[in-house]
């Protein structure tokens, strides 16, 4: 055991314990640490926004290089600040409209291509997809199961008709696939959460208390 004398490691360690204290019950140490986190994280955010975004992309081109058209970006950006002036607060809708407009536009072809066309291509029954499993003749079976699974899952989410007859059967098969999918998601979520805990103990036992390397 070789406890560190580095004051920053001690600060990090004590803050870690402040958060862990929530496991016993909510308390002032946890609240202190929680508020400190939000405060410092936003200070970090502000630093990079000014030094690395507004500086090189607005202040330098406009005020140093004299590119006058950057006044438009500056003016429209400043409209965000008018949110705090009640009489003209509606002007904040202009920069929001520009941002939402571009994003919603750009997302349309991206979604069609990545989430619909490519996913359909990977689901349909083609010789290329059979071979993609690298499983010999089993590839055909895997592809058929996948195809049936996707179709049945979709049928489960089709609510315009009562789930009776053929739709009743397919939606029941769909539920099986959905449950297995959720089970896999749960299994992996366990790994994620446990990994984060391991990470914290690696810090406490390592750099702080020097019990492990």
């Amino acid at each position: 055991m070789n406890i560190t004398s580095d004051p920053w490691i001690w600060i990090g360690g004590l803050l870690t314990l402040c958060i862990f204290s929530f496991l016993y019950k909510d308390n002032p140490f946890y609240k202190f640490a929680e508020h400190l986190f939000v405060g410092v994280a936003n200070g970090y955010f502000l630093t990079f926004t000014v030094h690395r975004v507004l500086g090189p992309n607005l202040f330098v081109p406009l005020f140093v290089q004299g590119r006058i058209w950057y006044v438009i970006s500056l003016t429209v950006g400043m409209l965000y600040i008018l949110r705090f002036v009640p009489r003209v607060s509606w002007l904040v809708r202009i920069p929001i409209a520009v941002t939402i407009g571009y994003y919603t536009g750009a997302v349309i072809p991206a979604t069609i291509q990545a989430d619909i066309i490519r996913q359909i291509q990977a689901t349909i029954l083609t010789p290329q997809n059979f071979q993609s499993w690298n499983a010999g003749s089993s590839g055909i079976i895997w592809s058929v199961i996948l195809f049936v699974g996707v179709a049945c899952t979709l049928s489960y989410f089709y609510f315009s008709r009562e789930h009776k007859g053929v739709l009743g059967v397919t939606s029941k098969i769909g539920v099986i696939f959905i449950m297995v999918g959720f089970g896999a998601a749960f299994g992996y979520t366990v790994m994620a959460r446990v990994s984060l805990l391991i990470g914290r103990f690696q810090f406490i036992l390592g750099p702080w208390f020097g019990i492990i390397e």
């Binding site: 990545a114 490519r118 291509q121 993609s132 998601a185």
Partner: peptide
């Protein structure tokens, strides 16, 4: 990826994306 997203993102590996 973090394992929380494994189930959701795995389809993009299966599709070759």
């Amino acid at each position: 990826i973090t394992s929380v997203y494994a189930s959701e993102l795995y389809q993009y590996f299966q599709s070759g994306q």
